[in-house]
Design a protein around this nucleic acid. Sequence first.
DNA 1: GTCTATACCGTGATAGAC
DNA 2: GTCTATCACGGTATAGAC
Lengths: 200, 200
Amino acid sequence: MGNKEQTFQKIIEVAYVMFAEKGFEKTSLAMIAAEVGISKPAIYYYFQSKDQLITYLFDELYKVIQQDVAVDYKELSRVNFKEELLELGYKSIEAQGKDPYFNKIFNQYVLLAARDESYKKQLVELETSFLTSFVEVLQYGVELGVLEDTPTIEAKAQMLALVYDNIGNFMLTGNQLDYRAIWKEAVHSVIQGGEDGNKR
Amino acid sequence: MGNKEQTFQKIIEVAYVMFAEKGFEKTSLAMIAAEVGISKPAIYYYFQSKDQLITYLFDELYKVIQQDVAVDYKELSRVNFKEELLELGYKSIEAQGKDPYFNKIFNQYVLLAARDESYKKQLVELETSFLTSFVEVLQYGVELGVLEDTPTIEAKAQMLALVYDNIGNFMLTGNQLDYRAIWKEAVHSVIQGGEDGNKR
DNA sequence: GTCTATACCGTGATAGAC
DNA sequence: GTCTATCACGGTATAGAC
């Protein structure tokens, strides 16, 4: 309703897209203001500084990611555990093509985190819950009986998570690989069971 | 010898460190000049622009990485193939702590590549030879007879490469994980052979 | 309460003197 | 080969219009 809400929202949306496309530093407040249709200092009515606008966007992303990262695994079933885990990766690979903004902007925050403690703290939190959810998935697989309960189950899960995550990074650089095959290999290596026998 | 050589070299060294520590955009030419002990416009005698200085540093990195990426694998032997492959990863993990500059600066180029075609081109080249060398390692393992020759050997190698690479990224964010265990798991999953039997 | 006009200083960049 | 002077543009602060 309020004009204020509208302007605020528009600044955020415009900033998100421009930051993703051109990067934080090459996107000036004047450009954002022009696109929104206000004057440059007007942004300072809503945000104390450019840095604060950048931080605000990160906090928004932070919330979204936290939710996205946590859920899914309870829906995995005993019968098709492996296939469903594969599907999780395939979906992510496809989503990558759909929202090119997300990874471009997220990677910039990774960079900032290398020099800014508060970003660093939040990023490590995200990574931790990201990794944790993979551990939970595999432990769930153990519960279901489709996975052996080895002492290295945590390392296995983290390896899987690193592959999952880095597929996104490589896609970002435009490298054309058979990502589905890579993901399949990773899942397969963690769950040698399935159709193969894995008795000792 | 020449003063020219000296100044040039000093600019490069100072810029490399400052770019890594503060980032490209937050490092001004004035700061570099002050640290080198010259005036700001003097830098323009050696470089046409700030961007060109950044590009020059990348070209240097590019050469170094190309060499680092290509070599090693011929030294792997039949008897200790797995252990030596493990050692390769361990060394990289340790090196990460030694040269904090490298990854910080390299990641910035990854970001630039998302918006700049020429960086993108070179980066994809580096990634490609990086991935290729992992494929070669595993194919060498097949030759040695320590690895089965499966059709998925390429995907296996790329998976291994993604893990190897992303360990570096996660270390950068300051996340404290048992990276050696993760690497061990990755290598193990690719070479189930070794002491285990893997007959079908 | 919502914004514009204006001015300040630091930045990358250029021209020209020494 | 290096500096001084100068420029346009960037983020930022404030005064004040409505």
